[in-house]
Design a protein around this nucleic acid. Structure first.
Lengths: 195, 195
DNA sequence: CTTTTGTTTAACAATTTTGTCAAATCCAGC
DNA sequence: GCTGGATTTGACAAAATTGTTAAACAAAAG
């Protein structure tokens, strides 16, 4: 017989993602997630058997989505400058929806010893080479390409992770915060490029 | 009778800090902490009564230490440029010891609703004004001073938070990582200043 | 309408984590 | 040595979180 697909399974996963990656509640319990999704907690066990399976599935999808987004940029046939521009746009849009997703991946790394797939490392190496080439051409300031990468991702990700803190510190609301983040896209580009 | 002070209380707190802020195990259990400290778990209850008290105490001390470090820079009588230089040195040294401390404070903000003390906000405002003044003088590139702040802290904190990820991604060991972070101090200074 | 099968629920069991208590231990002061 | 209070420990209780099961429910197929 065909599965009836009431959409509950997806609802649970989406809710878990929202709680983990948008709201940053990294220690949410299965009951928390069930409540937020408006379903009986037993359903989490019905669909995923155990809490760990759900968490793992969500984490895996997070990594996959992240990779897909990155791939779309890295494998595109674009000039370097355009690629950076694209990367900032795409990454920040993602990070604005799921500010804590990266952080989740990092903390996962910190306990279980998940390895980074070789494939990603080679892709990164290619990108580092591109960066070096641009530096040779004098397009961007010379430095360790790894530092360049760290700078880029730091500038993009950090303010979104510290969302809450910043809003409170600078006394700004949702609307203005959004505006600031939009401005940031351009700002980061200039910062990275003019140095 | 006078307290015997076997140093156990401090040992427990220090161990908790190490686990939380250095190792990034934000979900450590009381047993984990007791084991890491090499003491009986009951002692955590003896000295702190409940888990929450211990956590709160550790978090409070973290905030206090952080503030003290920041104060020492912000309230110093220094030229702006020297102040930034000092800030980078001090902040990064701290962040290298306790990379996840800030993150801990942020995630704490995300569930309980801790407010930021007014005093800190006023100090920040003063700093933002200083930044604006420097921009007027043409010492640093003009932008929203809040963006300047976000840039600065992002460049300092993020690579340390993603410590594990970076080591794995770039295939680097502890020694080289340390070297990279040292280089970063100078790099960040130039980046902030020459834009 | 009945059956069949996937879905949902409530009650319960198991596990994990935290808290309590009394007894044992240790050490300063007598 | 003995005493008294602080410290430490192990056994146990309580609470919180997770997992299981059987039964109720809902919808498609016959």
């Amino acid at each position: 017989m065909t599965t009836r697909d009431t959409g509950t399974e997806q609802l649970i996963k989406d809710t878990a993602k929202r709680i983990f990656f948008s709201e940053g509640k990294l220690h949410a319990t299965t009951q928390d997630i069930a409540d937020a999704a408006g379903v009986n907690r037993t359903l989490l066990n019905y669909y995923f058997r155990t809490r760990d399976v759900l968490f793992e599935q969500v984490a895996t999808e997070a990594r996959t989505e992240m990779s897909a987004v990155m791939d779309s940029v890295f494998s595109a046939e674009l000039k370097f400058k355009e690629k950076i521009h694209q990367l900032i746009t795409v990454f920040m849009d993602q990070a604005m929806k799921y500010p804590y997703r990266e952080m989740y991946v990092v903390t996962e790394l910190n306990r279980g010893d998940k390895a980074i797939p070789e494939e990603k490392k080679t892709r990164l190496k290619a990108f580092l080479k591109e960066i070096s080439a641009e530096m040779e051409k004098g397009e961007i300031k010379k430095m360790d390409p790894r530092q360049f990468c760290m700078n880029l991702f730091a500038l993009m990700a950090y303010p979104l992770i510290t969302n809450c803190l910043n809003k409170s510190l600078y006394n700004i609301g949702d609307a203005e915060y959004l505006k600031l983040m939009k401005e940031r896209k351009q700002l980061i580009f200039e910062m990275i490029y003019q140095c």
